[in-house]
Amino acid sequence: MLDDRARMEAAKKEKVEQILAEFQLQEEDLKKVMRRMQKEMDRGLRLETHEEASVKMLPTYVRSTPEGSEVGDFLSLDLGGTNFRVMLVKVGEGEEGQWSVKTKHQMYSIPEDAMTGTAEMLFDYISECISDFLDKHQMKHKKLPLGFTFSFPVRHEDIDKGILLNWTKGFKASGAEGNNVVGLLRDAIKRRGDFEMDVVAMVNDTVATMISCYYEDHQCEVGMIVGTGCNACYMEEMQNVELVEGDEGRMCVNTEWGAFGDSGELDEFLLEYDRLVDESSANPGQQLYEKLIGGKYMGELVRLVLLRLVDENLLFHGEASEQLRTRGAFETRFVSQVESDTGDRKQIYNILSTLGLRPSTTDCDIVRRACESVSTRAAHMCSAGLAGVINRMRESRSEDVMRITVGVDGSVYKLHPSFKERFHASVRRLTPSCEITFIESEEGSGRGAALVSAVACKKACMLGQ
């Protein structure tokens, strides 16, 4: 009897593995994704193909990295998701002549009506938060230079001027797309009239992360975010950046690689679950690469896999709870928690219980395998993109072996128990001629924006502006 049951459990697990095998990517698959990513990057950089390229390769006008001589107080704003952060950054000489960066910050959550109302409502709310922060720190009387981390696709015309191309991540505030974001912020500050600010720089969160990590390690020339969304930036040779005049030196390019796949480059790798996630998203047909990796989508992918296993009578005796059938019910943090389970399955059992399920031991094991399959594919897909960037940098610099540091931020990278190990191992397999160091950014977005502002202020002083 026991043997029969054991055989049935083994057969069930084997069927589960057959279904989950769809998520496995072979090294040849990853090399294919990497080569296609490089081709799209090239198209994004070139003037004649930029418009139709899915990977936009947006110039950021960040050319210099901090040298350690900029000092002063800077205000930093960070808008990239449902939370908005205001930070005071003091850049100065530390002990023994070292450079020191001290920060104080406060988080504000953005109400739904500000995210989806008008641009005026959104930026009025942001300036209200700045006003509140300055009151708390008794700094209303000071006109501070301000660095703005704005983590949406922007076409820069200068370091302090950028046109919002399109909202992502659930934002829909009308009247912002096609307009200068810094102008919208300046107008809102003017409307309030109770404080003055000098907006000197606007950067993407990947750029802010790279600059913040450069402060720790001067070989950091790539910034990457794996959180709600997924994106990367890197220092490109100016001669390859056709959208900006000049051939000397390097400029940081914001790849906006989340949109890779929007022209069909990933079609052969998309599964039924991916198509369902895409169809029910706020932007169907867009940001397809990001939807395979980002935390906004990972939990939902797992939920759809679990429903398939229920329908195949391989999980929960073929019956799903009402909660499990509800879109968004299986949160991405559950994926991390399930994979963090120590082996007694308590954590998995508790999560499934909150979803109205009474799982068996085998159910718990199957749910864990589903989570591992989805998150491992995410790590491997992400590795193909980064390997594409790094191999490109090595080739354009004609280096036999390139040493490089990548600064990384984002909740999936930082909080998932195995993502970074799987990701690092896969990147290294795909970049055999590179020695890569990964560092995690601390308060990256805010500190990085302030350091970019410090560079901009120093330049302005040198130019006598």
Rank of each mutant, 00 (worst) to 15 (best):
V203R: 05
V367F: 01
Y61C: 12
E27S: 03
S127E: 07
L25P: 05
R275F: 10
D113I: 12
M57Y: 03
R46V: 04
D78Y: 06
P145Y: 06
K140Y: 05
E157W: 13
L309K: 00
I19T: 14
A114S: 07
V222A: 06
V55W: 01
A449Q: 06
V305W: 00
G117S: 06
F330W: 12
H137I: 04
E28C: 04
E236L: 04
R325Y: 11
G343L: 05
D194M: 14
R85E: 12
L430C: 01
G328T: 05
T326F: 09
W257I: 14
I130T: 03
K104A: 06
M210Y: 05
M197V: 10
P66C: 09
D400V: 09
V182Q: 05
E40R: 00
E70H: 10
N350E: 01
F133A: 03
L47W: 03
V91L: 13
G464V: 06
L122C: 05
V427E: 00
E70Y: 13
V86H: 00
F334N: 01
I163V: 15
R192F: 03
R377V: 00
E27D: 15
F150K: 15
R325Q: 10
F316T: 05
R397N: 13
K142L: 10
A329M: 07
A208E: 05
I110H: 00
E22D: 15
G328K: 04
V302M: 02
L301E: 07
D158V: 10
D365G: 09
G328S: 14
I225M: 09
G147N: 11
E245N: 12
E22M: 04
S76G: 11
S280M: 11
E67G: 09
H218W: 02
M462R: 11
D365C: 03
S418L: 05
C457F: 14
T149I: 07
E312R: 13
L271G: 04
D4F: 07
C129W: 06
D187S: 07
G94C: 08
G407C: 11
F74D: 01
M197R: 09
R368V: 13
S127T: 07
N240W: 02
S375F: 07
M393L: 11
I404E: 00
S340C: 09
L45W: 02
R191D: 05
Q465R: 04
E442H: 00
R192K: 11
K140E: 04
S281R: 00
E265H: 01
S398T: 04
H317S: 12
V55R: 01
M37R: 00
G343C: 05
E93Y: 15
F195E: 11
E290I: 04
Q18G: 08
P359E: 03
K414M: 06
D124W: 03
A387S: 09
L271Q: 03
L306A: 02
V203Y: 07
L47I: 09
G385E: 08
K169N: 02
T149C: 15
C434D: 08
M41F: 14
A10Q: 10
E440T: 07
E322K: 07
Q18W: 15
A450P: 06
V62T: 01
F269W: 15
R368M: 14
S418K: 09
G44T: 00
R250E: 01
Q323K: 15
R308D: 05
R5W: 04
T49G: 04
L463G: 13
K459G: 10
K169V: 13
G80I: 07
I159Y: 12
L307K: 08
Q106A: 08
M115N: 08
M8A: 12
S433W: 07
E399K: 04
G175P: 09
E9S: 13
N391S: 09
F23C: 02
V277L: 15
E265Q: 00
S453I: 02
M139A: 09
L314K: 06
K136W: 04
N179K: 13
L25A: 07
G446E: 15
I189Q: 02
L276C: 13
C233E: 02
A387V: 03
V452D: 04
L309W: 00
G295N: 11
D124F: 01
P417G: 07
M202W: 13
Q106E: 13
V401L: 07
Q138L: 06
W257P: 00
D205N: 15
K104S: 05
G299K: 01
V455M: 15
R85P: 04
C252S: 02
I130D: 00
W99G: 11
E242V: 01
E157S: 09
Y215F: 08
I404A: 08
V455G: 11
C434K: 00
Y234L: 01
R394S: 04
V226Y: 10
D135I: 11
D278Q: 02
A329Q: 01
G72T: 04
G318H: 06
D262Q: 14
K172C: 14
T326R: 11
A449P: 06
S212D: 08
K346Y: 07
A6E: 14
A425S: 07
S127Q: 00
E272K: 13
S263G: 15
R46I: 04
V455Q: 14
R35G: 15
S127G: 09
F84N: 13
E256Y: 13
R155A: 07
F74L: 09
A450Q: 09
E440Y: 03
I225P: 00
H317Y: 12
L165K: 15
L352M: 09
K39H: 12
R403T: 06
G410H: 03
T228V: 09
S336E: 11
H317C: 07
S373W: 06
L243A: 07
S441R: 02
L88R: 03
E395Y: 14
I436W: 00
P284D: 01
T49P: 04
L288T: 15
C233P: 02
E51G: 12
V207N: 10
N83M: 12
T437F: 10
A6S: 13
G80H: 10
E440M: 15
V406D: 01
D311C: 08
L357C: 13
K136C: 11
C461E: 13
E196L: 12
G410I: 02
T326S: 14
R394K: 04
A384Q: 00
L184D: 10
V203F: 02
K56C: 03
E96S: 14
R191C: 04
E120S: 05
Q98Y: 10
K459H: 06
V367N: 00
L301Q: 10
Q106T: 13
Y349T: 09
E442F: 10
R345D: 15
D341S: 07
S433K: 09
G249R: 03
Q18M: 04
L79N: 07
C233G: 02
G388F: 01
T326K: 11
E319P: 02
E216L: 04
L146P: 08
